[in-house]
Design a protein around this nucleic acid. Structure first.
Lengths: 223, 223
DNA sequence: CTTCATACGTGTATACTATACACAAATGTA
DNA sequence: TACATTTGTGTATAGTATACACGTATGAAG
């Protein structure tokens, strides 16, 4: 593929990837130090990087997560393209933001010299326009969780209904009735009982469920 | 704003804008001839153009519609960014597609030497990846019409409930019950009766309604 | 081994919402 | 005056959403 004529090439094309995961049942976002003098020092931001000539935006997002975060098998979807002229104060960079989700095993076991998970409430004053990207990502998550089985990418393979409900509550920002939630979610037939139970809890052990399919499905509205 | 370093500038950044409007009560899309030898000759495509150095993607979309289609006051929202390496066979172009909607007065009175409105069923075999953009745009329209007052950007200022219902039916692809549709839409309190009636129709004249606000509002699910 | 603390798992009655459905009324035309 | 056409309206029924409380299984502590 040839490169475009010089006169159209003033902007760099980047991806930024807000990645979220549950740690101890709470939503965290993955950020790393940003050090780009003179504008961006002593700040942090989501993982991001330039798209290169032989890949599309999604592939770039996957590569960036691998290279800069040592992360694989992340659920990714395109979020929004941020193109404000001065969104990067150094020079013109247009960024195709992608929402990323990881399971708790990945998030909890995550160890990396620079990138780290931080509770979502503490994600502010980030570099570039990453505060705005964060808001857009959470809004997307809220929209998705009621219309699809996206929760599956944030939960372990086997989970309890209480864990699922708690995830919904965190993302939606309000509490749900336990009995009604169970009735609705089970009626959708997207979950199956594994027959196994929680172990090592100091209360009545909960049944473990799993999603019937590993694919993202559209759903009628929940909650 | 400085331009980005040379090594990151291999792709051109463009916008493509599928614009839809009602003509004689049917949805049409706006396309124009594309003539970019050797790959794109004798084909048509949505209006599009390069983003330039001093504007963001939305501003570019507005400018392109003005310059290439002589269109102003178009409702625009970012749709999706298409970044396949070979989506433009000539060279690498990443396009931030925007969905555009115009009112029937604009669409019906539309006269332009090249750009023209074509019924959506006839929009196929378009240049570049515009068939895919068309599909994405219609899918977005379907999603939006049930969750927002986006219909207002496709209807005249004053319209009948039958016209509104017919728009919903066209976009959703199925028929709706007249009485139930009216009950639901009026209960939302997004419409007000203008007190005026249709004139010059050869049947019982319908009451004319208008949206209570000119802003896009989120709605609970309709239909 | 008993008691306690904790979280799990379940059903029903009521309010609300969605659906199905048919006919009289207002206009222009013949 | 009769006809063709499209508007505008109500009710009964089914289905869905909501509100709500207590017995049960486990581990820990005494």
């Amino acid at each position: 593929m040839k490169i475009a004529p010089e006169k159209f090439r003033f902007a760099a094309l980047a991806v930024d990837v807000p990645v979220y995961g549950l740690i101890n049942g709470k939503l965290h976002g993955l950020i790393a130090p940003v050090n780009r003098p003179p504008h961006y020092v002593n700040v942090e931001g989501f993982l991001g990087g330039m798209v290169d000539a032989k890949e599309n935006a999604l592939e770039a997002a996957q590569r960036v997560l691998q290279e800069k975060g040592n992360l694989k098998d992340v659920y990714l979807e395109q979020l929004y393209t941020f193109s404000e002229v001065d969104r990067d104060k150094r020079n013109r960079v247009v960024s195709v933001a992608h929402l990323g989700l990881v399971r708790p095993d990945t998030a909890a076991a995550y160890a990396h010299p620079h990138a780290h998970f931080v509770p979502i409430q503490k994600l502010h004053d980030l570099a570039y326009d990453h505060d705005e990207i964060h808001r857009a990502a959470l809004a997307r998550l809220r929209g998705n969780i009621t219309h699809s089985t996206i929760a599956q990418f944030l939960l372990p393979r086997h989970f309890t209904l209480t864990e699922l409900q708690s995830l919904y509550e965190m993302i939606l920002g309000h509490e749900l009735d336990k009995r009604n939630f169970r009735k609705k979610i089970l009626a959708l037939e997207i979950l199956k009982d594994t027959g196994r139970m929680q172990e090592g809890v100091r209360n009545r052990p909960a049944a473990l469920y799993t999603f019937t399919t590993t694919k993202l499905q559209e759903l009628p509205l929940i909650a």
